[in-house]
């Protein structure tokens, strides 16, 4: 008969020799076609090493006659996406900068592309979501206070040329500093920028005046004395009421936002030793499309004007 009984007695097939708690495993053979498939996978595996990079040699490895490369695959992917985005990118570069946020298509593309640009080039200083780093004076980009303006064209200009750098002639505030007002300030451009030298007492009076106009608790007597010092030395940049001046990147001293901190000690340090933050120019490193993209992203972080 063809339909023979299935043989599963240990004397027929033997055991694997494995034993656990008295339970033995019968060494039933595999069906023949399973074994064929096993040999096929071995052949397949060898073929794979011929077609794909595999065998290590002294200085490199065999590259495979099929010559695949993950680098090339990524490059091809990027090229394919660039080609797909070429049209909208061209539109982005040609568009009126201030009209980008209102154009749904451009904004959608630019904000997403800009996020990638931001997280590659900007996030190291300005931190995630543009939260800034007050300890180092890297401005918060998601609030609604701007040193040089928060409109699209102002952001694009700042990103393109940077601030006080030595590489871009059009950088903002080249040679302009928050002067170091202390009489014992370290020599340098910031000390040179001070039109007068102030004593520690005078600086204390000035600090209390700034505390007062920014709505914080201050020593009234010192603040009153500081008012004249402010009028003499500070209004040229920060304005009569301390509202700041974006043409010079002079911050508004009456609001709740401080680039280097608004406490008495932090203000004293700022006035005594001066400030002069630097931002690199990106026009040489980023394309116009990328700059516009990142500006759109920053504009949409919550403070765009």
């Amino acid at each position: 008969m063809c339909a023979k009984k299935v043989t599963t007695k240990s004397e027929d097939v033997g055991t694997t020799g494995h034993q656990w708690d008295g339970i033995e495993e019968l060494n039933n053979p595999l069906p023949r076609w399973w074994v064929w498939i096993f040999y096929l996978t071995v052949i397949w595996g060898l073929g794979y090493t011929v077609f794909y990079p595999a065998w290590p040699l002294i200085s490199h490895a065999t590259q495979g006659i099929y010559g695949p490369s993950e680098r090339k695959a990524v490059d091809d992917d990027i090229a394919a996406w660039d080609a797909k985005n070429a049209e909208v990118k061209a539109k982005l570069v040609a568009a009126d900068v201030n009209a980008i946020p209102a154009d749904a298509t451009l904004k959608d593309y630019a904000a997403n592309a800009g996020k990638a640009v931001f997280n590659t080039y900007c996030v190291q200083c300005h931190m995630r979501e543009g939260q800034g780093n007050p300890a180092k004076g890297y401005p918060t980009l998601s609030d609604n206070d701007w040193l040089f303006g928060g409109t699209m064209d102002a952001i694009v200009a700042t990103v393109s040329h940077g601030v006080r750098n030595t590489t871009d002639a059009d950088a903002r505030n080249v040679g302009l500093y928050m002067p170091a007002w202390a009489e014992n300030a370290a020599p340098g451009p910031m000390a040179d920028a001070a039109s007068a030298k102030l004593t520690a007492d005078q600086i204390g009076q000035l600090v209390n005046y700034v505390l007062k106009i920014s709505g914080q608790s201050a020593d009234e007597a010192k603040a009153a004395a500081g008012m004249q010092l402010f009028a003499d030395n500070c209004v040229a940049c920060h304005g009569d009421g301390g509202q700041g001046n974006r043409d010079m990147g002079a911050p508004n001293l009456t609001d709740a936002i401080w680039l280097y901190g608004g406490s008495e000690a932090q203000l004293t340090a700022t006035i005594a030793n001066g400030r002069g933050g630097v931002m690199p120019a990106w026009s040489g490193r980023l394309s116009e499309g990328d700059i516009r993209s990142v500006a759109t992203y920053v504009h949409a972080l919550g403070g765009g004007e």
Binding site: V6, V13, G14, T15, G17, L30, P31
Partner: peptide, 14 residues
């Protein structure tokens, strides 16, 4: 020791 040393690896299907 396994007692299946001389056994064939596969069996033809019945």
């Amino acid at each position: 020791m396994s007692d299946s040393q001389n056994q064939s690896l596969y069996a033809a299907r019945e």
